[in-house]
Design a protein around this nucleic acid. Sequence first.
DNA 1: CATGAATGAGAGTTCATTCAT
DNA 2: GATGAATGAACTCTCATTCAT
Lengths: 203, 203, 203, 203
Amino acid sequence: MGSAERKEREKHETREMILAAAKKLFLNEGFEHVTMRRIATEIEYSPAAVYLYFKDKDAIYCALQEQGFKELYRCQSVLTAIKRPDEKLRACGRIYLDFAMENQELYDLMFIMRAPLMAFESPEDWNLGRDTYEVLQNIINECIEQGYLKAPNAQIACFSLWALLHGVVSIFIRDRAPMIAKEHRAQVINGILDFTMTEFLDK
Amino acid sequence: MGSAERKEREKHETREMILAAAKKLFLNEGFEHVTMRRIATEIEYSPAAVYLYFKDKDAIYCALQEQGFKELYRCQSVLTAIKRPDEKLRACGRIYLDFAMENQELYDLMFIMRAPLMAFESPEDWNLGRDTYEVLQNIINECIEQGYLKAPNAQIACFSLWALLHGVVSIFIRDRAPMIAKEHRAQVINGILDFTMTEFLDK
Amino acid sequence: MGSAERKEREKHETREMILAAAKKLFLNEGFEHVTMRRIATEIEYSPAAVYLYFKDKDAIYCALQEQGFKELYRCQSVLTAIKRPDEKLRACGRIYLDFAMENQELYDLMFIMRAPLMAFESPEDWNLGRDTYEVLQNIINECIEQGYLKAPNAQIACFSLWALLHGVVSIFIRDRAPMIAKEHRAQVINGILDFTMTEFLDK
Amino acid sequence: MGSAERKEREKHETREMILAAAKKLFLNEGFEHVTMRRIATEIEYSPAAVYLYFKDKDAIYCALQEQGFKELYRCQSVLTAIKRPDEKLRACGRIYLDFAMENQELYDLMFIMRAPLMAFESPEDWNLGRDTYEVLQNIINECIEQGYLKAPNAQIACFSLWALLHGVVSIFIRDRAPMIAKEHRAQVINGILDFTMTEFLDK
DNA sequence: CATGAATGAGAGTTCATTCAT
DNA sequence: GATGAATGAACTCTCATTCAT
């Protein structure tokens, strides 16, 4: 019977619907202003129904976060094809910026939104995040080893670069750059990437 | 009438008291735990009294935001005493980082939080923010003019630097750096400032 | 100004209204089936208003319990006028039975209802209850000392008597004696008191 | 048809499983924590399945109540082996106390709880309860007839004794004796049984 | 017979806000 | 100007129960 299969699929689809609705609402109004009721209403279910798919509000948040980290990690996977560490570094920045600007809801959730503490409590929960961070760290290490980057401390260099990338996108996502019109954003981001790479990379 | 004046002054003082109380509570207990009632209790007024001085909760947010920008601008004023642009730039970064880490909830309100935003609706409201930004822009310009910094585009350079500073502090404020223990934060921040200045400034 | 006084009085009256409503509902439906909403509706207030007078549901329960113990203790105060311990003992039983049957709501709350744990957690909270219990214990002690009662253990004797009294009234209050018509209850209670005193007291 | 019979038997068995699960949960986790869902989970059925065997939650309560009375009656059956009425009376008390303390939630359901009560609406439903009560009444009658007990009214004597037994256990079950540590309960109960029998029985 | 999915009703509680005084 | 009292609207979450399959 394909019946069981179909049910399985439907169940999965409902879960996805909930996540999509939550994602949308979280972005528009922030985690704490989104209510379970509104998520339910959004998908035309009763509030209680949501609890059949997620233990509580935090669980929805966590699921979305996981989704986000997996997606980001997936985007980073193309980097393995690049050989030169300096090119790799630039591509890594590019990917990060693109991911953030194209998935603003998810990015906000992953890196900006005040999280339910639980989400970061256990170190295991951070594994996904760590993986994506290590991609950058490894590239930085390679750059240093192969003389593309002079830095007394690889970790500081890595954190600085991440901070810069995060700073750019979070300023835009949270609308703190009214001096830059929306239509110029892409251009500015390109400029920053160029400038940064020039400054950071030697030769 | 001196009486009218006195009343005016008293009114102003009460406003300031409310703001001071709100700021203190935000810092000590975090944003979501501050209610109108707690603000009122803090200053030993009734909740209703607060509404005589502020239209609603958002109005308090906005006033604090304004205060934050003024305070940051005030901090930046010591920069005029520094002559060499490169030293000025480093000091400017230092000031920004310190301000953010010492007034985390205020910084959050100014640059991260989504909540009120009303303050950003009219361009005039942005003047304060612009002023503080221009301090950085002017220093960057000086650096370029005097050869301390090579950058094809002064605005891009400025935005990049701001992004880096903002990135660092907002990662900490929103607790996205579990790999760095709280007691090492200051150290890391110093490292980043050193590294950044070395990379960005030529000679 | 009598205004402040009047307000004080009104506030007190509202508290009493809430307690009265809660008492009535608790009896009819049991603690766990009574909702704050229903209490509020009963007195034609909003649910939130109840919280201005009582911290939470448990606080209402505790206040009623306190009320009950105070009232019972007050009823017992007439016993001091009686000299002979055997007469005192009988009177004490009488008072207990009457109190229970005339204040069934309160009695239920004090001795039967599943209590919010908190109500009995701290030993201080039990002081009131202990006081009323000691009245019986003291009388029993006197009876033994003066030869009206032979019992190897005064505490066991006291607990037994209390158990009997409590047993009788709680069977009635929780309607477990369908074999005894309501109109015969008083009579049966009298019979039990007589019988018990005869059996327990020597000579 | 043997098939119909088998089905009947299976249906009965499932009913019993549900009751057993419910009883176990009541005892282990207390009344208010038992939900239809938990009962269903316990027997590895779906919540909906339970409704095929019981109209609603109350029906389960009632069935358990019935079971409780049957079980108590069964416990009392050993009494027929005892000849001397005074020994019989003491044994009857012992059995009652033990049953109550070993099946506290069941006893609660039978004699204290307000919840279902449906079971007491029709007089027929009381037959079971009456049977267990009559066991005690008959023993009391024998005691009186054979001179072990002097009582002007056998019914009053019986009710008094029941009240005492019920009083003791219900004080413990509903936690109203904080002056007696849990580990002393058994001892106190023994003391009460001794004391009571000494006082009530002549010779 | 049994279930997965869903829901309506409602629980206790909190908060920004108002208004008569 | 200030307040005590009050409220409406929400909040998250739970539970007994139902119904299409």
